[in-house]
Amino acid sequence: MNNSPIVKTTAKILIPFIIVFGLYVIINGADSVGGGFQGGAVLASAFIVRWMVSPDEDIDIRYMKAAERVLLLALFLTGMLLLGRSMAMPYMTGRVWMVAVNLLIGIKVACGLTIIFYRFVFFESR
């Protein structure tokens, strides 16, 4: 698997498509199949493919950990934003709010799964 030009070329072509598909699943999750969790898992698989191409330790997990915490806080705050309102909010507000929450969940899940993966690959040894 190391330094195989076939794997490298295929992955380079594949990674943008995976990311676009993940974002599509996240953003379109409000009214079709998918949602934050599924899209986030798809985004995390892009990182796994990236690891297959270049298995170097050049991703700083600490930033990802920090980003995950901040995103969790943002998720709570976004949830509380519309707390006092009645359910009869304007259409656009609801849409924007839903997409925003889905995006936050998606990026948070992608960060979390990537952290799990990279930690397992690089730090856990026999």
């Binding site: 199949v33 599924q38 898992a41 995390a44 796994i48 993966f117």
Partner: peptide, 18 residues
């Protein structure tokens, strides 16, 4: 289909590679 996507991504990709 929601569960199907989650299963395909997590069961097929993540857990196999792990």
């Amino acid at each position: 289909p929601d569960v199907a996507i989650a299963e395909a991504v997590i069961g097929c990709t993540l857990s196999t590679i792990l």
